[in-house]
Design a protein around this nucleic acid. Structure first.
Lengths: 202, 202
DNA sequence: CCCGGGGGAGAACGTCCGTTCTCCCCCGTG
DNA sequence: CACGGGGGAGAACGGACGTTCTCCCCCGGG
């Protein structure tokens, strides 16, 4: 027999693989049992219902996804490199053989209309990612509105890559992010210049 | 009794409202009957199966969505205004009271892993939108890579707006698009300048 | 007026799925 | 060795759903 913790772990791993690949509703508890090797009886001791399992799956994925991203970004030194590293990490992710988009976007599309708990999880995950970007942007000294723009590029790359099946959107997003940072710096300089001009003419 | 065409129309309208609001799998054929007022027998005369109805729903939504966008964009004169008008139109769309994201992204997340027909429809729709943007970009004379970047901004705004529940991402995307166009023009000018400088020094 | 066919309402059928229950085995304890 | 309890395999149960069928009505044509 399996330790309670390892059984739980195997169930969550199986659930993650199945739910992510096929969607939540297309996967029965029987499939989770088959893939995890944990009997139905035990499964229902560990998780009181399928919905509970789905929510645990999302929570687990939220933390592991954000940890992996942060770990990768942390290997870069300057704030500018860190911002761009986000898109390099996305490119790696998109290149995984069974990449099928963001589990939260997918779950939101499937269940967001009928389960507020799932919708809340999606909101929480996306909010956390945006906040993470805001932190990176702050370190660059660039204006906060850049964070929202970087966020849109990342989200767009995630779904576009999922549907087209190529990791290329990550590169496009990275290049756009570079240009946006450049443009914001340009604007700053111009504003400063304007201020100085104004002072001089007085 | 209803004319065959109007019955078909009512079924598709009901299907669109239900599938979009709750997801495909959460809506039974009984709900489609109830909302459309078309009996099950007739429903199955018009569409041989639920899957066929789903595909028709997606096809119909593809054309009507792209038509509405193009109609709005066409009311703007210059190429630059037309590009930005895309995001204004998105803002209108996001502000609809029961906006719940892109039907194709949602369907792809829910069914893309188990139905290649649905995945194909999503690919087709997104490809058509990207091609449309490419046409707008061509009219501005800016480089084609801008089209992919504008596309990412739009896709990102669509999902971010759906999950957060505010239309604000449309404005953020519009501003980012403006900056990107500016940045591309800047780069062009610099390149041209470089070329001229090189000539002068000879 | 009779007749036949198309259509509406909804029952019926078969399947699937979430959840629980039964039965049996195994293992550790006295 | 006897025994009790936890766990595995899978049957069972209740409900939902896609799809088809039954029954009855209505309406137009002879």
């Amino acid at each position: 027999m399996l330790d309670r913790e390892t059984a739980r772990e195997q169930v969550l791993q199986a659930a993650e693989a199945l739910f992510y690949a096929q969607g939540v509703q297309a996967v029965g508890m029987d499939a989770v049992r088959g893939t995890s090797g944990v009997s139905l009886k035990r499964l229902y001791q560990l998780f009181p219902s399928k919905e509970a399992l789905v929510l645990q799956f999302l929570e687990r994925r939220d933390t592991s996804w954000r940890q992996a991203l942060a770990r990768y970004v942390d290997t870069h030194a300057t704030p500018d490199e860190q911002v761009l590293a986000v898109y390099d990490w996305l490119h790696q992710w998109f290149s995984e053989p069974d990449y099928r988009g963001c589990a939260f976007i997918n779950s939101f599309g499937e269940l967001g209309g009928i389960s507020t708990a799932v919708a809340d999880q999606a909101r929480h995950h996306k909010q956390a990612f945006r906040d993470y970007l805001a932190g990176l942007v702050e370190a660059t000294g660039l204006p906060q509105e850049l964070a929202d723009q970087l966020n849109l590029l990342a989200e767009g790359a995630i779904t576009t890559s999922a549907i087209t099946g190529t990791p290329e959107p990550a590169h496009q997003a990275r290049e756009a992010a570079r240009l946006l940072m450049q443009a914001h710096r340009q604007t700053e300089k111009v504003d400063t210049q304007d201020a100085q001009d104004t002072q001089l003419t007085h």
